[in-house]
Design a protein around this nucleic acid. Sequence first.
DNA 1: TATTGTAGCGCACGGTGTACGCATACTGCG
DNA 2: CGCAGTATGCGTACACCGTGCGCTACAATA
Lengths: 233, 233
Amino acid sequence: MPAEQKSEIASVWTRPRRQREQLSREQIVAEAVRLLDADGIEALSMRKLGTRLDAGATSLYRHVANKDELIELVVDEVYGELEVPAATGPADWRDAAARSAYSLRAMILRHPWVASVLGQVGLIHLGPNVTRMSERMAAVYGAAGFPADETERALSTVISYVIGMATSEAAYLSLIARSGKNEQEFAADLPVPQQGPGQRDPRAEDPAKTREETFDYGLQRVLDGLGVRLTAG
Amino acid sequence: MPAEQKSEIASVWTRPRRQREQLSREQIVAEAVRLLDADGIEALSMRKLGTRLDAGATSLYRHVANKDELIELVVDEVYGELEVPAATGPADWRDAAARSAYSLRAMILRHPWVASVLGQVGLIHLGPNVTRMSERMAAVYGAAGFPADETERALSTVISYVIGMATSEAAYLSLIARSGKNEQEFAADLPVPQQGPGQRDPRAEDPAKTREETFDYGLQRVLDGLGVRLTAG
DNA sequence: TATTGTAGCGCACGGTGTACGCATACTGCG
DNA sequence: CGCAGTATGCGTACACCGTGCGCTACAATA
């Protein structure tokens, strides 16, 4: 039968389809993080991601329900980078809290796109890494000696501050990245209000350091405020 | 000539185009806010917005450079809703700061979509309302009596905290909105770890109030921490 | 070997932002 | 009043997006 023969011929021409190494969810998520880090959130499309993995766009849907779920997975992935000290006791609380806060800030600055996603993704039904980090941080604050029912609020306070500050830093850095300049050039060209023509803004010299100092200032104030509750109790 | 006649006939059939009231940037922005409040960020498209204004999608581009610029305008618009007390002096600082903070939180909860946008829009080149509010808030902190060079950082600290906390609240509320339930039902169905079967989570009774209390707790701690710098100086 | 499940993919659909050029309406001038 | 110049709205088109559907080729099982 010609039809059969034709299909045989076609299957001859169609190369025997070398064994494609299988896609996996881990692979997809890892490549998505790379793409996001390189090109930002608006550059993430299923087609581009598929191409990077030598796969068709729709193949990804065998391992991921949809794009939103992929983003949840990706957020959980980077939460896995956090370093939260083990809880010890009241003496070390402030140090451990500060380390956690710095680690969270560093993660957001390494992956500025998380900032643009945290507002849309509720952290409620997120994955194992988010859960684990939350528990570890809760343990740190639990061991600190806050009045009962306050440890959760204390933790939220610090996390909110860090996320708020780091988000605005990340947005700023994304803006710079899109402008093509580096941070110092960008800051130097920024119009600063109320300033004489001759004098330069001292902050323009090392903007990254200034950012970190601003972050640290706020963090210390927040920890000061929480510390009052500690000693009072 | 038939061609001319045809065009005349066509212009007869073509209704003389009743005077369309002009589109204006203000109108577009106001309608965009309404659409965003009603249906969230992912529902905002130029076509839908155009339809709501009885206009074609591309007509909007006469008044707005592109969608990103529209979003910047819209963000600036809602910043105009903030109520920031006039700066008076050290005695009133804490009250004024708290009022500003509450006003900012309320604005974000009224317009939960801003939370999902703050991470992408740098607040650097934003519009008159953002500028004005920033200046008013800076004045409040400037009159408080912080050591020189600290007022800006103090302000950033509080704003970061409020934005971080309100963003997570907004994400939570958006999630609920998508689920169709109301907040109380949603909270009741939420799995809460480590809890006996008989006892109910007391927070489930009035989740909105619990959220506000959590916000206030953190705000008071932050203001406490800043207050230390005040009295020390 | 025959069967059954599954990973990958081509195609298609409905949606998006927005560039372009035309037609109409308004404005300011003679 | 008449006309030129400009501003405004819009239809069309393009490239891209997320993703449902059904086909094919292979892996594992019976």
